[in-house]
């Protein structure tokens, strides 16, 4: 099935029953399936764990916001896109919160109209984009670290074998090719061996 048509499970945490009903109605017949929780009456962590929602909507003034924030910091549960309700359109706060892991905002009257769907779509897109960026960052960090190890091995080889940088590089590359290993793994082994021999 196309990702855009998949049913997405929305966990809505709101003590305001009227607002919750309005939001559910606005999302009727869309790909979003809403389940409503009254925050003060249930354990959010347990619900997130058992329901595995695709997106969470919560009031910016809910005490449970700290629980959601911790999902990112402590990595106990896979992070989810978070959308917040706000009674007033407070651009400053909105800008700030989107810098602390909140994917989007639903403000005031938008709860009950077709804008909600657009906001949720945008939140998911933004969240996916952020996840990708995070993954890319991890990947480049890994690459940097492996480059550092290879450089270190090159220097050690140049010193011990009295060869040029190019030759040292080719040396590492050849071992990697011959053994089907990654170059940084080979480099690590070379460093370990040379250090043991010269210790």
């Amino acid at each position: 099935m196309n990702k855009d048509q998949q049913t997405l499970h929305v966990l809505l945490i709101d003590d305001d029953a009227e607002r919750a009903t309005a939001l559910s109605a606005a999302l009727d017949k869309s790909r979003y399936q809403v389940s409503h929780l009254v925050g003060s009456e249930s354990s959010l962590l347990k619900e997130v764990d058992s329901r595995q929602p695709d997106i969470i909507i919560i009031d910016v003034e809910s005490p449970d916001r700290d629980i959601l924030e911790s999902l990112h910091t402590l990595n106990t549960v896979n992070p989810k896109p978070i959308v917040m309700f706000s009674e007033q359109e407070d651009t400053q706060l909105i800008n700030q919160s989107t810098r602390s892991g909140v994917s989007a905002y639903v403000v005031g009257a938008d709860v009950s109209n077709s804008k909600v769907k657009t906001i949720l779509d945008a939140a998911i897109a933004r969240f996916d984009q952020m996840q990708q960026l995070r993954d890319q960052l991890e990947e480049s960090k890994r690459q940097l670290a492996s480059q550092k190890v290879i450089d270190q091995a090159k220097v050690l080889l140049m010193e011990t074998k009295k060869i040029s940088e190019k030759e040292a590089y080719q040396h590492i590359r050849k071992i990697a090719m011959d053994n089907g290993q990654r170059m940084d793994q080979v480099a690590k082994n070379i460093i370990a061996i040379i250090r043991t021999l010269t210790a």
């Binding site: 003034e61 916001r65 959601l68 924030e69 706060l93 700030q96």
Partner: peptide
């Protein structure tokens, strides 16, 4: 305030 995260965001935002 009701949560530390929102307190922090309001402080950062100058509210």
């Amino acid at each position: 305030q009701n949560s530390w995260a929102t307190l922090r965001d309001k402080l950062h935002a100058g509210l």
